[in-house]
Computed example of a mutant assay.
Amino acid sequence: MKKKKQRRIKKEALTAYLMIAPEMILMLIFIFIPIIYALYISLFDWNALGTKTFAGLDNYSHMLDDATFWGSLFTTVKYAVIYVAAVYILSLAAAVFVNSIRGNRRQQACRVAIYLPNTISTIVAATLWSFLFNSRNGYINRIVELFGGERQLFLGSSSQALICVAVVGIWIAFGYNMIIFLSALKDVPAEYYEAARIDGANAVQRFFKITFPLIKGTSIFILITTLIASFQVFDQIRVMTSGGPAGATEVTVYYIFQLAFEQYRFGYASAIAVALSLIIMVVTVVQMKLLKFK
């Protein structure tokens, strides 16, 4: 009997390993091996065509003196602040709103409508919003003028371009995070709300005393994932601004792209990529500590 149980456990374990094996192989091929190779390339001066010249830590020392790199990192941080805050607030507000709707059909229709932008590719969304933000014939400027406002430059303005780019990312992402928040709200016991109503708590008090503390784990997860995503922004910047105007939207990932595929400085680009990965890792750990992740 004991042997049969052991065989069954081994069979179940083998089945589990076989199920996750394809995912692990893909992660090994497309994530771990490229990371190791990027770390290796960062130690060389290489244009992807000629012979690699060993440079040691020269690429990293040059990075510390590179004003463009620090400027791109500052732009990335600004984008992250806008993106993370907006996605978190909007997705939570949308989840609370959808959860308050009575009737499964109405709630489902509203949930689908909010989630729909997440099904659109970033390239398509960026192209669409580029037309909307067009300073000459864009529909947003027409609406502004309709209400008596002045025509805006949007993507042509160094003060507005980064916000416009962030709008695209927020529009795509907040519906997905709304679904995550909504699933967490569904798990909050209704008895807690009923007891709070009996005690005279209003809607705001119920939210901050019951809902918000009970979805803390979900909040931390969304803050961490959105922060990581914000440091990796590239697609909409490539389509909408190409890092302009005057470098106002040149984030670090776009700077890496320019170094690697426009200037063919693969060694230096890899060094910055490694540094950015470490920065994301450190920021994530600090964020987890500050939010007291358990």
Rank of each mutant, 00 (worst) to 15 (best):
F131A: 12
L162Q: 10
V96A: 12
I114P: 07
F74W: 14
T241L: 03
V283I: 14
I120W: 01
D45A: 04
M178N: 07
F293E: 14
L128D: 01
V144S: 07
V81N: 09
A271G: 14
T122A: 11
I179C: 03
V84Q: 11
V253W: 07
V112I: 15
D187W: 00
N202W: 02
N59D: 04
V274L: 13
E145F: 00
G103Y: 01
F257N: 15
A38G: 13
R111H: 01
F133Y: 15
L278V: 15
I29N: 03
W70N: 11
M178R: 08
R265V: 00
Y37L: 15
A93E: 04
N137G: 01
E150A: 11
R238C: 00
Y88C: 02
S242M: 11
I29K: 05
G175C: 04
R197P: 00
N134S: 03
T75C: 03
I41G: 03
I140L: 15
D235T: 14
S270M: 08
Y83K: 15
I101V: 15
T284D: 09
N177K: 09
T51G: 03
M19R: 06
L132R: 06
L39R: 11
K52Q: 14
V87G: 03
L185Q: 10
V251C: 05
K292T: 01
P189F: 06
G56W: 02
A173R: 13
V84A: 07
I31W: 05
F69N: 10
L290P: 08
R102H: 08
R206K: 12
A126W: 01
R238P: 00
V96E: 11
K186C: 00
I198N: 08
I215T: 04
N177V: 01
A113T: 08
S270I: 02
P189A: 08
S219D: 05
V81R: 10
Y192D: 11
V124A: 14
I237E: 07
Q287G: 14
T211H: 03
L153I: 00
A184N: 04
I222K: 10
T122V: 04
P189H: 09
A126K: 03
I228K: 15
F74L: 15
V204D: 01
A246F: 05
I114N: 05
T211P: 02
G71F: 00
G50K: 11
T122Y: 02
R7F: 00
I280K: 12
E194W: 04
V167N: 12
Y88H: 13
N59L: 02
Q6K: 13
K2M: 07
F32G: 02
Y60E: 09
F208I: 05
F261I: 10
G148A: 05
I41E: 11
L227Y: 01
V112R: 09
D65A: 14
F174R: 12
V251Y: 06
S42V: 00
C164G: 06
